[in-house]
Design a binder for these strands. Structure first.
Length: 311
DNA sequence: AGTAGCACCTGATTGC
DNA sequence: TGCAATCAGGTGCTAC
């Protein structure tokens, strides 16, 4: 499942290959992949054909190309989206999961950019760029940015250097939801998905269902740092892959799945204490944790436990 | 306002 | 063997 490290790997790959390219032709092979546009495939093609890609940008799991038209060609990979680039004028037959194909030109060079998406939760979109500042929900810092209209509600990226960890950690402690639910809320901090949420909670020794308001300031800070650490490490290894749904623009998988401590390891021993890891569905998402290391409530003897009369 | 629940979708896997 | 049920899950919408 593409989360921040996977989407960043895709962004970097695309940026190196298609920056400066002009979109010469657009073929939408499945209309639902441009479902956000009322005018469908025709509107999509009309909006981006003839434009030149200035930059490839990302916030959280949202990805977009800045176009010279001052609009954005935006994309979300959903669960299974992939971009694949082919070089040269000889264009291979499209994959059965190919939802859209763009022809690109850089000078005399021709490229084909395919958007593949087996489970079709992903999309392509053409939309205006909106200037944003620290007025963004969950956004801190003082820089300004241009983001697509559909991304204006998304919080600052978890690895954005302008993210204020103390402020983000404070936001994470609000409300009655389980802390994992909060981590997955892209309007709080952007980029954390199901895999890295479980990993960060295991590293920070926090139960996924601990209410956000029962997480201490120190714990929230540690949890955010753990999420950043695990995603930085995954990024360095080219992203996680355990089912071939995620690949980079050259079709290669990452290696980070070998480093997972919690996700997908239900029934296996915890690497810290040996207790068998629990797997359960929480909020409709498979969740993995150690019932020994990750307690739902604060440990006996802590201020919280004493206030409640202990557990 | 904040939160829970569900729809969206397809292919691999599991169960009978 | 074959068909049906189950599972995976990010986002956004609706309902409470």
């Amino acid at each position: 499942m593409p989360e921040l490290p996977e989407v960043e790997t895709v962004r970097a790959g695309l940026a190196s290959l298609i920056t400066g390219a002009t979109i010469s032709a657009v073929e939408v092979r499945r209309d639902s992949c441009v479902r956000l546009l009322p005018g469908g495939a025709a509107e999509f093609a009309a909006a981006i054909t003839g434009t030149t890609i200035r930059a490839v940008v990302r916030r959280g799991k949202f990805l977009w190309c800045e176009l010279d038209s001052m609009e954005a060609l935006s994309a979300h990979l959903g669960m299974s989206g992939q971009f694949r680039v082919h070089h040269g004028a000889v264009v291979p037959a499209p994959h059965s999961h190919c939802r859209a194909r763009l022809l690109l030109e850089v000078g005399s060079q021709t490229m084909t950019l395919d958007f593949l998406d087996q489970r079709t939760f992903g999309y392509l979109h053409a939309e205006p760029l909106i200037a944003t500042s620290d007025g963004l929900p969950g956004g801190q810092g003082s820089d300004t940015a241009m983001v697509p209209a559909s991304v204006t509600h998304i919080a600052r990226d978890a690895l954005d250097p302008h993210l204020d960890p103390a402020s983000a950690a404070m936001t994470m402690r609000r409300g009655s939801r389980g802390i994992k639910q909060v981590m997955l809320d892209q309007t709080v901090v952007a980029g954390i998905g199901n895999i890295y949420a479980d990993e960060a909670l295991w590293m920070a020794r926090l139960h996924p269902e601990r209410p956000a308001h029962a997480v201490t300031s120190r714990q929230a800070t540690d949890l955010l740092a753990a999420a950043q650490d695990v995603m930085r490490e995954a990024l360095a290894q080219g992203g996680t892959s355990f089912d071939a749904l995620y690949v980079n623009v050259n079709g290669e998988s990452g290696y980070f799945s070998r480093s997972l401590h919690a996700y997908g390891r239900g029934g296996e021993p915890c690497e810290r204490c040996g207790r068998l890891l629990t797997r359960a569905s929480i909020g409709g998402r498979s969740t993995h944790w150690c019932s020994q290391c990750q307690r739902r409530w604060a440990a006996r003897g802590s201020r919280t436990a004493r206030a409640r009369g202990g557990t």
